[in-house]
Amino acid sequence: MVAEMRNQGDFTTSEVEAVFARVPRHLFAPNETPEAAYRRDDIVERKRDAHGMVTSSVSAPWLQATMLEQAELRPGMRVLEIGSGGYNAALIAELVGETGQVTTLDIDAEIVERSRRCLDEAGYPQVVVVLGDGEHGAAERGPFDRIIVTAGAWDIPPAWIDQLAADGRIVVPLRVRGLERSFVLARDGDHLVSTGHRLCGFVAMQGEGANQERLTLLRGEEVALRIDGETPTDPDGLGASLDMPRVEVWSGVEVGGFEEFHEMDLWLATKADHFGLLVAQQSARDSGLVAPGTRMGAKTIIDGATFAYRTTRPTSEERTSFEFGVYAHGPDAQRLAEDYANLVRVWDRDHRYGPGAHIEVWPANSPATGLPHGRVIGKRHTRVSISWPQGAVS
C-alpha cells in the first residue's frame, strides 16, 4: 500500500509516509480481508443506515494522507479529530508523538466503542475517544493546534473556532455550492483564510451540523438536479425543458493527460448565480436523454426554465485529450450554453495556471462591505467569500 501511495504521489513528507508504514490498518477493519484493508483507493468498515446510505467508514488511505499532509502535524501538538474510525487517530498519534495529545470524537456510540477497542488492540491507549456531536467540538480537551474533520461539513460552527489555538488550523471537507473540498483554514483576526484546498469526498456530518442538498426532479427519479442552496424558481419548466431539442456549444478549451481541472468547477460554481449538479440514472444515460458524465453529477448552470451542463468529447484517437463543451435545454438554451462556454474560456485564459481561488470564512453577521470582492455564500454560522486573483502564467 505504501509503495503504491508513494508511486502515486500521495506523500509530500517522509514523516507521513513513515506512519502509514507503521500503523496496522487491518486492525481497524476487522471485517475486511487484509487485501481489502490495504487498498490505496478503498474505504473500509462501512456502516449504513436503514436506507443503505453509508454513515461511517474508514477513509481511503490516499485521502487520509492528503489531509494529514495538509495539517502539517508536529510533535507536541494537541489535535481534535471530528468523525472517528480509529485508524486516522492512530496515524495522528504517531505524528504528534508522546508529547502530543489526540482526541477523536464521533456522534455514533457504536463507532466510538469500536474505535476505542481497535485503538487499544493496535497499541494506542493514549488516544482519547469521545462520544458527542461534532458541532460542539470538545472544549474540555482544547484548545487545539489542529482540528481535523473527517466528515463532510456544510458550515464551520463557532465551537471549532473558539477551541482553536491562536495559530491553529482547521482541515475540513467543506461543501461549497455542492462541491466538496478539503480546506486548510488558518485564523486571521476575526475570520479564517484558506491556505489551500484539495478535491475530496466524505460521508456527511450528522447531528446539528447536518445539511442535506435538495433534489429537483426533472424526470421522476431518473434525472434530477442536486442543489446546495435555494431551489430553482421554475422546477416544472426545467422538467419540460428536458424534452426540448438539445443545444451544443464547444469551447475550444482542451484538457489532457493527468491535468486536474476541479478548480474550474469551483470557478463555474462561483460565477453562476444558480448552480447545481445534474445527476441521472443508468437508463437516462443509456437512452441518450442526458450525457454519460451525469453519473457523478455534471456541473450545471440554471436560469429560470433553462439549464446547461458541461460535457466533453475526445480530441485524439487515443482518447487522451478532450474538449470541454456545453449541452443545454430550455427556451433560452443557445444563450445560456454560449455564456457557459465563455466562462470556460475565461477560466482557461485568466485562471487555469493562476494562483487559484482566494477563500475566506467570516462570521455570519459580517457586513458585505467588509468582505473581499467576489461570490459570498451565506451559511448558518458563516459567510464564505470566494474571489479569483488575476495572474495566469503560461
Rank of each mutant, 00 (worst) to 15 (best):
124 Y>P: 05
87 Y>V: 07
74 R>Y: 05
80 L>S: 00
118 C>E: 14
125 P>Q: 07
97 G>V: 14
125 P>C: 08
112 V>S: 04
116 R>S: 08
96 V>E: 05
74 R>G: 04
125 P>I: 09
93 A>V: 02
95 L>H: 09
83 G>C: 03
73 L>N: 02
91 L>R: 05
74 R>T: 13
99 T>M: 11
101 Q>F: 12
79 V>P: 00
105 L>A: 09
71 A>S: 14
101 Q>R: 14
91 L>K: 03
89 A>T: 06
98 E>P: 08
124 Y>W: 11
76 G>Q: 06
112 V>C: 13
86 G>F: 03
124 Y>M: 04
91 L>S: 04
75 P>Y: 12
104 T>S: 12
99 T>Q: 15
117 R>G: 09
115 S>H: 01
114 R>F: 10
98 E>G: 05
80 L>Q: 02
104 T>L: 03
85 G>M: 05
120 D>H: 13
79 V>Y: 04
120 D>L: 13
114 R>D: 13
98 E>N: 10
118 C>A: 10
119 L>N: 01
116 R>T: 11
110 E>L: 11
114 R>Q: 14
121 E>A: 15
75 P>N: 12
120 D>V: 12
91 L>A: 06
83 G>Y: 01
123 G>Q: 14
84 S>I: 05
76 G>E: 08
100 G>D: 12
90 A>Y: 00
107 I>W: 02
101 Q>T: 12
85 G>H: 01
119 L>R: 00
117 R>L: 14
78 R>T: 15
103 T>N: 07
111 I>M: 10
103 T>R: 07
103 T>M: 07
84 S>D: 04
82 I>T: 12
107 I>K: 08
